[in-house]
């Protein structure tokens, strides 16, 4: 316990002793986590946008003339089982006639003496579908259903939107990974510099019989403290920026930036993991 308290206090004191290198590391963590935070917020809000667009995706399925409303209901159950399908809405022959009347003002049955409109249905896609929705396989599956006559859809547009969304997510993940990698390198190099400047301390500690863990621990704790400070500053900036931006947006549009603030705890966790990895990497090169 005494050793742990000493190492903890050494880690804290080192923050003051190595002010300049600490500032560099904290600033790097702050910048990296702020960028990762911005990417995360962007991803969360892009997600809302894609969900909104998916809610507008519409596939219209027209059944063959011979298909009755009851038969169509059974086909609808089959359609609902297709992965990616959220809901189906049956449009009976009578409902189709009503729609026709409301849109064109004519009553087809008056001069044809029968209702020529087929039973149809509208298929809605799942909004919260993991990853990219591939629309073509859904349409192919629908077309394979026996009673289906034609399928109208915005397949090309949907495919473009989904591809763009998927590439965007991949790009964001790539950028976030690159930033994490750069931060690990920066922290690692900063700690390396600190260790290099503390060769005397390490030599003295070895001389008096300190174990490797005892020598390493203050450097690792120093790295963790740097990361926590950097994460706290980044969190404060992100929180302030989102609150400020929403204040401004509320005066201009109805759109607001939504953030699950729990993600800030993830930022802290990422920071600690980065620092542990970075400082361990640096120390292992010097203290073998």
């Amino acid at each position: 316990m005494n050793k742990f308290l000493f190492l903890l206090s050494e880690g804290l004191k080192n923050l003051w002793r190595h002010k300049l290198t600490v500032f560099t590391a904290v600033f790097s963590v702050f910048l990296s986590l702020s960028t990762i935070g911005v990417l995360f917020i962007a991803e969360q809000n892009t997600h809302k946008l894609i969900e909104y667009m998916r809610s507008k995706y519409k596939i219209e399925v027209f059944f063959k003339d011979s298909i009755t409303n009851d038969q169509a209901s059974q086909y609808l159950q089959e359609i609902r089982k297709i992965p990616g399908v959220y809901s189906t809405t049956l449009i009976t022959k009578d409902e189709a006639l009503k729609v026709y009347r409301s849109q064109f003002g004519d009553d087809l049955t008056e001069f044809l003496e029968y209702n020529p409109l087929p039973v149809s249905c509208v298929v809605n896609i799942k909004r919260q579908y993991d990853g990219m929705i591939k629309i073509n396989p859904i349409i192919e599956r629908i077309k394979e259903i026996e009673g289906v006559d034609t399928v109208n859809h915005q397949g090309r547009l949907i495919s473009r939107i989904e591809t763009f969304y998927e590439q965007g997510l991949l790009g964001l993940s790539g950028i976030a990974f690159a930033i994490i990698l750069v931060t690990v390198m920066i922290i690692s190099n900063t700690i390396k510099l600190t260790i290099y400047s503390k060769k005397d301390l390490i030599k003295a500690l070895k001389m008096i019989g300190a174990t490797h863990t005892f020598i390493r621990m203050p450097f690792i704790l120093e790295g963790v403290f740097q990361a926590v400070i950097g994460a706290a500053l980044a969190s404060a900036l992100l929180y302030g920026a989102v609150v400020g931006a929403n204040e401004l947006l509320s005066q201009l549009t109805v759109f607001t930036i939504n953030v699950q603030w729990m993600f800030l705890s993830w930022l802290f966790l990422i920071a600690v993991i980065i620092s542990l990895f970075g400082s361990s990497r640096a120390i292992s090169r010097f203290i073998k």
Binding site: N2, K3, F6, A204, L205, I208, G209, A210, T211, F214
Partner: peptide
């Protein structure tokens, strides 16, 4: 320092 290494209070 040596006593901290040993873990004295």
């Amino acid at each position: 320092l040596p006593l901290h290494v040993i873990g004295h209070n």
